[in-house]
Design a binder for these strands. Structure first.
Lengths: 286, 286
DNA sequence: GATCCTTGCAAATTATTTTCGTGATAAGTT
DNA sequence: AACTTATCACGAAAATAATTTGCAAGGATC
């Protein structure tokens, strides 16, 4: 799909000359996007035709197509190749974190299952009661974020990060209710238990989790969020940013499914514009 | 700086032919980045030289430079020109949200005051006790995130979203302590009061907020987070993502200032790799 | 009516791609 | 082991295509 991932896949199969070209891309990216085919060829100590062939090899139509692809993916993908920040220099750390966050959003957008999200939004909009479940520092934040967003549309919602409480709520839930559960790893077996229990009484269960995971298999509707685990397991913040964005999308679609939500939101907006001297709570609107 | 902003500034001064070229860029961007100068010229109904002149006019060296610039800024900037999503179609909503989030990260990275963050990180790393303050759905999340991140480095930290509690904590704080307060709007007057009170006893106060705001003026160290308000006041999630990233950077730098944090984190990582069958809580590491 | 700006044409320049041939390496054959 | 033969990488040069420049014509403005 994008050049850098192709490059990583093909790396082993490249010839010496092509490897030299690849090295320039990775090391002196700035030069590569601005250079002409001749300059690039000279720097890599190869002939222009070899550069053209290289471009074709990594899946581009032509050299100019290659440059466009390069420039396009660069902003997001450039540092993706360097798994760890090079130094402890604040600038590098910041760059690394921002890039990983950008990347998480980028990957999320690519792999988003819109049909599932819309289906989930419809169910949520019609639900008599919504339970947002999630445990651990990450998923519990997602659960409370869901509560935070949904109650403003006039929906009945409660969040819980307590497994015992989740089980009780799941046991008491009715068929018109919806449970939305979040699990970054997909291996939250307690959540699986709540889902299974709830489904016995016809409760709709929605999971934000990794596709094909235990949690995914236990839910009615799965909103899969699959990010390259290697890059994120030790840096959950970027994964969390992707989850937050997914919740944002879900909540927006829920709003569109509730006629009066638009009215309420418009009123909040007008309120915000008219009265701008409160504290953070004025940022309620959306 | 980037092409689209130049384009917006120059728009009024463009000639009819150049306006036609600009229109193509804005309306059929995909075509524009992939087209040759001839194709673009034909579509705009002008001659190739006019396209070259147009490129110079918007600050590029040449047509190919122009294309690279275009492709480069496009990913982040493209939809920035369209302030509102075009439709309620899930794809458009998702696109809009993701783009705004990307943009928030982009703007954050540009405007980041690294010196302030590093200064804050040093203070936090040495603090006897840390208080993370924030109110409202947004800032309270940031406060608990700070707690979440910092306690793992062996630091003493507590988060509070309650104004009354914040005041009491601030009154009881000692000069070796640090208060980190978050306010998206910068107008949280209760937080200002806590800061002012705390500074009387020499407590270091750190604010994550808008530059030159009330809260910023009341703090010792300000980590300014200024995002285009117009785009974010009604859509706080993207601003929040920027705040989360800022907290991530801050926490990473704090870790580098604590020698034993590295050891602890490494142990957590090994733990994670060895034992991969728990639930979400396994994603503790960073 | 003079001047300035915009624009296109055609030529010149430059960049890119194709074609073709050489040399190297590997696999099969005598 | 020595000799084909196939395959591939690569570069030189030619062919092609794209881009830029110089210049002149057409319009608008003062």
């Amino acid at each position: 799909m994008d050049i850098f991932s192709t490059l990583q896949e093909e790396k082993a199969r490249l010839s010496p000359s092509e490897t030299r070209i690849a090295d320039i891309l990775l090391n002196d990216f700035e030069f590569a996007v601005n250079a002409s085919i001749i300059e690039l060829a000279e720097k890599a100590d190869v002939s222009p035709p070899t550069v053209t062939r290289f471009c074709r090899r990594v899946g581009c139509e032509s050299f100019s197509d290659f440059k466009v692809q390069l420039a396009r993916t660069a902003y997001v993908g450039m540092r993706y190749l360097r798994p760890e920040p090079k130094s402890r220099d604040p600038g590098d750390v910041a760059q690394d974190i921002i890039t990983k966050a950008q990347n998480a959003l980028f990957l999320l957008h690519r792999s988003l299952d819109l049909a599932a999200i819309e289906q989930a939004a419809e169910k949520i909009a019609k639900a008599g009661m919504i339970y947002a479940f999630g445990s651990g520092g990450n998923s519990s934040m997602i659960a409370s974020e869901l509560q935070n967003r949904l109650f403003r549309f006039g929906l009945h919602v409660t969040a819980s990060s307590d497994h015992g409480m989740q089980l009780m709520l799941a046991a008491a839930a009715k068929s018109t209710h919806v449970i939305v559960g979040s699990s970054f790893s997909g291996r939250n077996t307690e959540l699986v238990r709540s889902f299974t229990l709830a489904r016995e009484t016809g409760v709709t269960t929605i999971a934000l989790t990794q596709a094909d995971s235990l949690v995914a298999k236990a839910a009615d509707i799965v909103i899969p969020i699959d990010l390259a685990e290697g890059n994120n397991i030790f840096r959950p913040t970027s994964t969390r940013i992707a989850y937050l964005a997914a919740v944002d999308i879900l909540a927006s679609l829920v709003a569109y499914n509730i006629p009066q939500a638009a009215v309420t939101l418009r009123r909040i907006k007008q309120q915000l514009v008219a009265h701008r001297d409160g504290d953070d709570r004025q940022l309620l609107g959306d």
